[in-house]
Amino acid sequence: MALAGIFLMLFLIFHLATNLLMLARDDGEAFSEAVKFLTENPVVKIMEYFLFAGFLIHIILGLLLKLQNYMARPVKYHKSLQTETSTFSRFMFHTGVIILIFLIIHLINFFFVRLGWVPIPGEAGEVANKHDFYSMAQIWFKNPWYSAIYLVSFVFLGFHLKHAFQSAFQSLGLNHTKYTPVIKVIGTIYAIAISVGFAIIPVYFYFFH
């Protein structure tokens, strides 16, 4: 769980870095260049499979854990637990499910298009003949509903990551009286950076493009 999570967290950094190239004022040239490299490089292609595996493992383990943990207390408390725990940690499963739903939407929007499973969306409802992530992003994020869904999801992603980062260290036993507080701060910065970073894209396309 933790290992897959860390892998996914690393992926998010790459993903964000690539996405931020969209902000360059060159009509997506730098971004397209990067996408071209990523889609054609054999190493990245292999990594893609790992990425899928990472997601699958993380999701399946998450579901199994939830199920096991649910069963570990067959009779529930009448008065629900008042023990103070961080809100983020208590709702990891819930935020996880929201992120999963988002992920499916996200895959339909972008990735399945590349695979040709979903027709390429074009300007004004037309079907374009050449798929291009940059123009797709332009199209999707002009739609306020899509932008809103993305933004809300990023908020939950932030919540998820806030706990996930330091939790991964705890689960792997990487704990130290001196460094753990630092790790917690880094985790918070990371969570905010990732969610805000991703959020910039739809906001940028909706308002400024």
Partner: peptide, 24 residues
């Protein structure tokens, strides 16, 4: 799942740091 409720309600205040040590 690292919610740390155990540490909060442990009457002897045992730290979850020991869980990390166990994991290690």
């Amino acid at each position: 799942s690292n919610t740390y409720g155990c540490e909060f309600d442990c009457p002897k205040g045992i730290s979850v740091d020991f869980i990390a040590l166990m994991n290690r």
